[in-house]
């Protein structure tokens, strides 16, 4: 277990083992935990694999001699009960700490209400009076400032959706009747793809969006150009019905724009 602990502290210099190099501080915590779990898992895997392989290769039947009919070895049995318990408890300790970091809700600088619906997303900047809506094949873009504490309120209008941005190393369900809250502190500028992960009906595969991380100055400029003066944009029931009826069509026609107020 010592290696995993040390490696958890060493952090970012390690390979990501297939995961994404997280762009948020929460994601980086998760990534470190993943690295620790991956290394521990790999060590356990290799040891057990070697034991199985040794038994399989070494004890192939070579004669008719009767093997000793032993059945118990109390010491060894206790050994391989206690060691996994220790490993598991240590892993749980790291999990517990990381989980509290990832789920912490510090006071935010700004908030975005993200709403999933069949089959698109709405990003409503609560204090800025800006709303972005996009449906399938017209992916909306959530613009967020760098190095600011952003609170996301996540909910759904109809069925359960999954808000998932691989580059954040994070996902959360958008559910009807429940508002999920989480915090993002984004470090790295760029545009990142996101997608619904929880199966939500016909066009689940196309329910994509983007997250664009910009500098605070660029963000302020973006807000001012998209500032909404009219009534808040939202999905009308007629549009939802039209979407629901679009079953079987290759490209649904959506009346809502890709971005803007």
């Amino acid at each position: 277990m010592a290696p995993a602990g040390g490696l958890l502290l060493a952090g970012c210099n390690l390979p990501t083992f297939g995961a994404h190099r997280a762009i948020s501080s929460q994601g980086q915590d998760s990534l470190k935990l993943w690295q620790g779990f991956f290394i521990t898992g790999a060590v356990v895997f290799v040891i057990v694999f070697a034991l199985i392989a040794w038994a399989v290769l070494r004890y192939r039947r070579r004669s008719d001699a009767m093997p000793r009919q032993f059945q118990y070895h109390t010491l060894i049995e206790i050994f391989y009960t206690v060691i996994p318990i220790i490993i598991v408890l240590v892993l749980f300790g790291f999990t517990f700490v990381t989980e509290n970091n990832v789920d912490a809700l510090p006071a935010p600088k700004m908030a975005v209400t993200v709403t999933g619906f069949q089959w698109g997303w709405r990003f409503h900047y609560t204090t800025k009076n800006v709303t972005v809506i996009g449906v399938e094949l017209q992916d909306p873009e959530m613009v967020l400032p760098q190095n600011e504490t952003v609170r996301i309120y996540l909910e759904s209008h109809d069925v359960i959706h999954g808000f998932y941005v691989p580059a954040l190393d994070f996902s959360r369900y958008a559910q009807p009747g429940i508002v999920n809250k989480f915090t993002l502190n984004l470090h790295t500028l760029g545009t990142y793809r996101g997608q619904c992960t929880q199966f939500c009906g016909l066009y689940h595969s196309l329910m994509r969006f983007r997250v664009k991380v910009v500098t605070p100055a660029q963000f302020a400029a973006w807000v001012s150009t998209h500032h909404s003066t009219g009534p808040e944009a939202s999905i009308s029931n007629a549009e939802k019905t039209a979407l629901a009826r679009s079953t079987g069509r290759a490209a649904p026609t959506a009346t809502t724009g890709g971005s803007g107020s």
Binding site: S30, L33, F37, G162, D169, S171
Partner: peptide
């Protein structure tokens, strides 16, 4: 044995919520 070994090790990873957050439903 080999199949379940790998499935079991990845199962331990999934039991950790922060890891589950980013591989869940993938």
């Amino acid at each position: 044995l080999f199949a379940f070994l790998m499935g079991g090790v990845t199962g331990v990873m999934l039991a950790s919520p922060p890891i589950d957050f980013f591989v869940h439903t993938t």
